[in-house]
Amino acid sequence: MKDLINELQLKNERLESEISFKNGLISMLSHDSKELFGNFLWIIEALEEKTISEEDFFNLLPQIKSDAQKNLQTIKDSTSWLKTQYGEFKIKPEKIIVMDLFHHFEEKYAAKLKEKNIKFHFKGDSNAFVTTDRLLLDYVLDKILDNAVKYSLPGQDIYLQEVTEGDQVILSVVDSGTGMAEKYVSTIFTYENPIFQGTSGEKGAGLSLKIVKNFVSLMRGNIQIISAENAGTTVSLFL
């Protein structure tokens, strides 16, 4: 009886978490879309009515472009999540060599890493592997690495670290970038967390890590974030 009650409580907590996530996502998409299109209409109407000069119009375009890129990323992230919610989506576990993952992201992020003069290293067993869904793991590591690059300063190093403990594989993305104060770490997966700019002014919507947590749960894993202000961040996946 006690086990049944605990199971029901766990299911109830998961349901409440999913409802909160979906409500927050809908609110974010609605707010950001209204803000972006509102700004588009305002700047076009202002130019038509000659309440701003052409020079001021063109000066505002970089900000409009930045906001549009942020909103496009939100839509892409939302689409990735929606694919796991409808139809016959099922986890497809397969053997994935960790070193292959490293080389994949090393190539994918080559331009960004070069732009910031950041070196990307692998630490661990080069023969290690993890058995999980490739698409979900690719998305999760992509978003974690993207944040590591975003919040690292030029010349700093980033590591993909692998540790195997029995049947569990721990994959960590370790950076020595700007990090964050401990009070923000506990809110990172909620819609209350603040949005920080990257070291080169990069902007995000703050949605990707919320989807990351959802995908890690689908993979039956756990995620841990350890961070300190001006001392870097370590994001670990326990798979």
Rank of each mutant, 00 (worst) to 15 (best):
Leu135Trp: 06
Glu49Ile: 06
Met180Leu: 11
Asn230Asp: 05
Lys203Ser: 11
His31Thr: 11
Ser176Trp: 03
Val235Leu: 11
Thr187Asn: 09
Gly38Asn: 09
Ile225Ala: 10
Gly206Val: 00
Lys108Leu: 15
Gly198Val: 07
Leu136Asn: 06
Gly38Leu: 05
Gln168Thr: 12
Arg134Met: 02
Asn214Gln: 14
Ala228Cys: 02
Val174His: 02
Lys11Arg: 09
Asp32Ile: 07
Ala231Arg: 05
Glu192Lys: 14
Phe57Ile: 06
Ile96Arg: 02
Asp32Met: 14
Ser66His: 09
Ala46Thr: 10
His121Asp: 11
Val235Tyr: 05
Lys108Glu: 13
Ser208Trp: 06
Tyr139Glu: 07
Glu18Tyr: 04
Asp100Glu: 11
Leu10Asp: 03
Gly38Met: 12
Ile19Asn: 04
Gly206Asn: 02
Val185Trp: 11
Ala128His: 06
Glu182Ile: 04
Leu135Thr: 15
Thr178Asn: 07
Leu171Thr: 08
Pro62Thr: 10
Gln73Ala: 14
Lys22Asp: 10
Phe129Cys: 02
Val130Met: 07
Ile44Pro: 01
Gly124Trp: 03
Thr51Met: 03
Leu141Ala: 02
Met180Gly: 02
Phe40His: 10
Ser200Tyr: 06
Glu94Leu: 12
Gly206Pro: 09
Ser176Tyr: 03
Leu141Val: 05
Glu106Arg: 15
Gly87Val: 14
Ile97Ala: 14
Ile144Trp: 05
Phe215Ala: 12
Ser217Thr: 12
Leu113Gln: 00
Gln69Lys: 15
Lys210Phe: 03
Lys70Cys: 10
Met219Cys: 13
Ile158Trp: 01
Val149Ser: 03
Ser20Phe: 09
Gly155Gln: 11
Asp125Cys: 08
Val163Trp: 06
Asp142Tyr: 10
Thr190Cys: 01
Tyr109Arg: 04
Tyr151Arg: 12
Val140Trp: 04
Ser17Leu: 01
Asn214Ser: 08
Ile44Met: 15
Asp133Glu: 12
Asp100Ser: 06
Pro62Met: 10
Glu88His: 15
Lys50Pro: 08
Lys116Cys: 02
Ala148Phe: 00
Asn117Tyr: 04
Ala128Arg: 05
Leu136Lys: 05
Asn127Phe: 06
Thr187Cys: 07
Lys70Asp: 01
Ser66Arg: 13
Thr187Glu: 13
Tyr139Ala: 06
Ser217Leu: 12
Ile26Tyr: 13
Asn39His: 09
Ala148Pro: 04
Lys70Met: 15
Glu7Cys: 09
Gln161Ile: 08
Leu15Tyr: 10
Lys34Leu: 13
Glu49Asn: 14
Leu209Met: 13
Val169Met: 04
Gln224Phe: 09
Leu8Cys: 12
Val130Gly: 02
Asp100Gln: 06
Ala181Val: 04
Leu47Glu: 12
Ser126Tyr: 05
Ile188Gln: 12
Asp56Val: 05
Val169Glu: 07
Glu182Arg: 01
Ser66Trp: 14
Ala181Asp: 07
Ala148Asn: 00
Phe57Gln: 01
Met219Gln: 01
Lys90Leu: 06
Lys65Asn: 08
Met28Gln: 13
Leu207Thr: 08
Leu239Asn: 02
Val216Ala: 07
Lys34Ala: 13
Asp167Ser: 03
Val130Tyr: 00
Lys2Trp: 11
Met180Thr: 00
Asn117Glu: 08
Asp142Met: 08
Thr233Cys: 15
Lys2Ser: 14
Ser186Ile: 13
Lys143Val: 08
Met28Glu: 13
Gly206Ile: 00
Ser27Tyr: 09
Lys123Gln: 14
Ile158Lys: 00
Asn193Leu: 03
Glu35Gln: 12
Leu207Ala: 11
Asp32Thr: 11
